[in-house]
């Protein structure tokens, strides 16, 4: 393909296609360049009535895509600033349709860890903390984005559950008092995963162009459910790439890496 897209652009397209028109969504305040791009792409492609909260807290902001966005960046160009207080109430009530979330580790049931590696009492690596992550689970569904697909990140069991996925299987969320929600998809640099309805285990949904099923299996630290036939993740369309590059990301933040396709 002459125009060569990057993994970040592909991930933004995959997420954008998951967003339905009129939904209320949310992106975390840190390292949200892919989530923000995907929402803005969806708003321009098929979901003009979607509103997305961002950071702590504004919505529908024109803030530049950036790994590091300060409160200043977020407020400038936003449709509204939102009292942090009200935002949590909205989220807890279950009024947010989708939320993006990442982590240092993810396991076969979609549980996420952003707190620490090793024993919590004396961790080998201290992460940013639980933050709003477990509140995210009160969105109707959440999207997991992971920037490194290796068996260090895709582990059998996370060291600390900071954002509950399906915990340890069918019925576990309900047992813990979580009455709705859960992860719907996981997008990594290699593949798209979803969750098997019956077992609640992570299942391979598609592999990105140029990636094999074996490659995904070898880089995943637990047994993925592999359907008999695994399709390829649809590459970004010309229209998606045009909108991404001319309207959503003219500065080329998502292109600041080696193209893959």
């Amino acid at each position: 393909m002459s125009q060569g897209y990057t993994i970040s652009e592909l991930m933004a397209c995959v997420f954008a296609r998951e967003i339905k028109d009129g939904e209320l969504g949310g992106c975390p305040g840190v390292r949200s360049e892919v989530p923000l791009a995907s929402v803005r792409l969806a708003q321009r492609m098929h979901a003009p009535n979607t509103t997305c909260y961002y950071g702590a807290i504004v919505y529908n902001t024109d803030a530049p895509l950036s790994k590091f966005a300060t409160e200043y960046d977020r407020i400038i160009g936003a449709e509204a600033s939102v009292a942090t207080y009200e935002w949590f109430d909205t989220l807890h009530r279950g009024d947010i349709d989708f939320f993006f979330v990442g982590g240092m580790q993810v396991d076969m049931y979609g549980n996420l860890n952003l707190v620490c590696l090793g024993d919590w009492k004396k961790p080998t690596l201290r992460g940013p903390g639980s933050a709003g992550l477990n509140t995210v689970t009160f969105a109707r569904r959440h999207f997991i984005w992971i920037n490194e697909h290796t068996s260090r990140v895709f582990v059998p069991k996370v060291d600390f559950i900071s954002c509950p996925g399906y915990l340890d299987g069918p019925g576990a969320r309900e047992g813990a008092g979580l009455r709705w929600g859960g992860p719907s998809i996981v997008v990594s640099p290699l593949a798209v995963m979803d969750f098997d309805q019956e077992t609640k285990r992570m299942r391979l949904r598609s592999v990105h162009p140029g990636v094999t099923v074996d490659e995904v299996k070898q880089n995943t630290g637990f047994e993925l459910i592999i359907p008999d036939s695994v399709p390829q993740t649809p590459a970004p369309s010309e229209e998606e790439l045009r909108v991404l590059r001319t309207e959503v990301d003219p500065a080329g933040i998502l292109r600041n890496e080696e193209p893959v396709g």
Binding site: G55, A56, K122
Partner: peptide
């Protein structure tokens, strides 16, 4: 949470003390 939340900088002292 313990984070510079988008600003440059890291919780070096806190991380060391916790670890």
């Amino acid at each position: 949470f313990t984070s510079f939340e988008g600003a440059p900088g890291a919780m070096v002292n806190f991380r060391r003390a916790r670890q």
